[in-house]
Simulated assay, not measured.
Amino acid sequence: MNRTARVIRDLFLTALIFLFLGLVVVRLDVRNSEAPSGQARVVDGDTLVMGGQRIRLVGIDAPELRQVCERDGQPWACGRAAKDHLEALIGEDRAACAADGSDRYGRLLAICLIRDLDLNAAMVGSGYAVAFGAYEAEEEMAKRNRLGLWAGTFDAPHTWRRTHGGMDELPHMPTGTLRIMLSRLGDWIAGIWND
């Protein structure tokens, strides 16, 4: 292949890659604008409904409503306690959420705030949810202080769902993971072209 043909091919591929990346960024921006704000209804310890839309708090996993854990050698309705704790955090305030895509069940994956309080981090930090792709530092603090779930014994929520016929899901990717992967892909492609 002569030099002119390679230059034309490289320009064409570059234009296609930029078009693809532009479409991805636009799609990500649309997803980020999809998350509603307003009064939230708590479904369970990691799911809200706002404006008729189900929102899954990204990066965390709370016990299911029917899940029972153990505390001081006694059964403890930890799923109900997680829901109650999230309701107490929200109170009568309005939530503002930033979406990070959707899960396979159609729920928006979002980080939600009440005033300046990150609800996702607060649920893990208080021990009423576990880290599920993010918030590992908050989980370590809750474990150390034996807060919430960590004050007793429990099955991880995803394990409990699997053994009780609930919805199966994988840990969530932290915010910005797709953008980081696309950036690395662009660096890799640039490295190939420079060779």
Rank of each mutant, 00 (worst) to 15 (best):
F154A: 10
G166H: 00
G125I: 02
P63V: 08
T159W: 09
L21M: 15
M181A: 15
G148C: 03
C112K: 04
G186F: 03
N194A: 15
A88F: 02
G38K: 05
A151N: 06
D72M: 11
C112A: 01
G101I: 10
P157C: 12
I90V: 06
D93V: 06
L23H: 12
M1E: 07
D187I: 11
G133S: 04
R104Q: 05
A156D: 09
E87I: 08
W150N: 05
I192K: 09
V68K: 11
L170G: 05
R41C: 04
R179G: 10
S102W: 09
L178M: 08
Q39A: 14
G166D: 01
F12R: 13
R56F: 07
I60T: 03
I180G: 07
N2M: 02
L21N: 02
D29G: 10
R9I: 14
G101H: 09
T163K: 12
G91N: 04
R41V: 12
Y105L: 04
L28Y: 06
R144V: 05
R56A: 10
G148L: 07
M181H: 09
G52N: 06
E140K: 13
C69A: 12
R56N: 07
P157G: 07
G165N: 11
P75D: 07
V49P: 03
T153M: 11
R161T: 03
A134G: 01
G133P: 01
W76P: 06
R179A: 14
R161I: 00
V7L: 15
P75Y: 09
H158S: 10
T14E: 00
F12S: 10
G79R: 00
H85C: 02
G127Y: 02
W160H: 08
F12E: 07
G45V: 03
R184Y: 13
L23M: 12
G101R: 10
R94W: 04
G148E: 02
G79Y: 01
A95H: 04
V124C: 12
L119H: 06
I189T: 04
H164K: 08
A98K: 15
I180T: 15
L28K: 13
T47E: 06
V24Q: 10
D168C: 08
R56E: 05
P171M: 07
D155F: 12
V30W: 13
K143Y: 12
L119A: 00
D187S: 12
C78V: 10
P36N: 09
G106C: 05
I192S: 09
L28P: 03
L113G: 05
